[in-house]
Design a protein around this nucleic acid. Structure first.
Lengths: 219, 219
DNA sequence: ATCCGCATAATATGATCAAATTTTCTGTGG
DNA sequence: CCACAGAAAATTTGATCATATTATGCGGAT
């Protein structure tokens, strides 16, 4: 009937482990990542680790260092501008597509996540904020049933994550009033363009915080 | 001084091999790709093949088949629409960024590629068309020095390739008047927005051919 | 400062185990 | 007697590991 135990392969475990560490900023930019180190920490052999690293490198979450080493990529003004450009175009569209497929049942799940998010903000829990904000956006985007834009958004967040974490670590969770309520209202009204706009405003606000902290323009 | 022999690793060889086959449509959509098969054909061992497949899967060039097999993804109207949306936004921007960094020296290289392209079109050489058209676009885009948008464009072409090949195989290379001249003129005039528009028109024309052949809307 | 060995980490292979698919075998019903 | 469904064996393919090989970076000696 439903999910039989389903053994998750080792390479998938390793992948998720590193991915989440990057996504939530546990691995700071510039941090080198070695195969051997992961073999020892995660107690698996080289092959699955190598597969996970190739995958993460392809997704832009890790970067080759010329000589055969990989590390978490460094962020700069130019790269930030590109991330802003791509997120601006892709995520509102995903929100719109998701809004079309959305049902009342699912809005409750979003509300539940948003509640946890607000709690984390109130407590000043940066790690919790990173986690639940990600969960909210991708619970929404997943409803788009998109096979192209959704993976793209995932890689954009993987690249954006470490920076986001640093900024939040500096400025705290105080100024993080989001536009999730607005998005959920739009979904309920079935005003799909409004949903897209709410998400656009939400992520633009995030960009603004980064700009203020770094002095980058990121037009 | 410059490029010392630099041994290319086996996983990279395998990766490029499969990637090019997908890009130029030698592997049709639905084609299953097995690890064992590649091990035998390319005469390398499993690990490098596995790495190449993980990487290509992450890039959307291959797709998991539930049971642990992979194949070249199937194209459909919905997926096509998403590819159109993404390419429309990303590639003109890449062309614009490239245009800014471009010098006269490099325009000659583009012209040379475009000449080969025209030749392939004249001869009705579909394979050559696929190859040189790709070379033209990415020789241009590469000048953007983009670290985010360029990889995204690469994965979009990987997903788009097999379809493009099928359509060209059906309709031939007759109706493939491109807008590359226009783009190169804009670059020479240093009118970066015009370069973006020329590329936009170029790819839109490609979409139109697909729409006409398939009946898909892909707005 | 440059060169040479040593330590370390990455690359690549073949063997082994597990899962899935295909083939073969067998018994039942028409 | 033949056709077919279902089960069990055999084969193929994928996943993981331990190990050998190769390249890179480091540190000391010239």
């Amino acid at each position: 009937m439903d999910s039989i135990p389903q053994k998750i392969p080792a390479h998938e475990i390793v992948y998720r482990n590193i991915r989440d560490q990057i996504l939530y900023g546990d691995l700071p930019p510039g941090q080198p990542v070695t195969i051997q180190g992961l073999v020892e920490n995660l107690e698996v052999s080289m092959t699955p680790v190598r597969e996970a690293i190739r995958r993460l490198t392809a997704e832009g979450a890790l970067e080759f260092q010329g000589n055969r080493r990989v590390c978490v990529p460094q962020m700069g003004e130019k790269r930030f501008a590109e991330l802003v450009f791509a997120r601006r175009h892709i995520e509102p569209k995903l929100a719109e597509l998701a809004s079309v497929n959305m049902n009342g049942q699912f809005v409750h799940k979003l509300k539940a996540i948003d509640l946890q998010l607000d709690e984390a903000i109130a407590k000043g829990d940066v790690q919790g904020y990173m986690c639940h904000n990600h969960r909210f956006h991708f619970a929404l985007y997943a409803q788009s049933n998109s096979q192209v834009l959704l993976p793209m958004a995932k890689t954009l967040w993987l690249r954006y994550g470490p920076l986001s974490r640093i900024i939040c670590g500096q400025t705290g969770t105080q100024n993080l009033a989001d536009h999730h309520e607005e998005a959920m209202e739009s979904i309920a009204r079935r005003d799909h363009k409004a949903t897209a706009n709410a998400i656009r405003t939400d992520i633009e606000q995030g960009f603004e915080i980064v700009r203020n902290s770094t002095g980058w323009s990121g037009i």
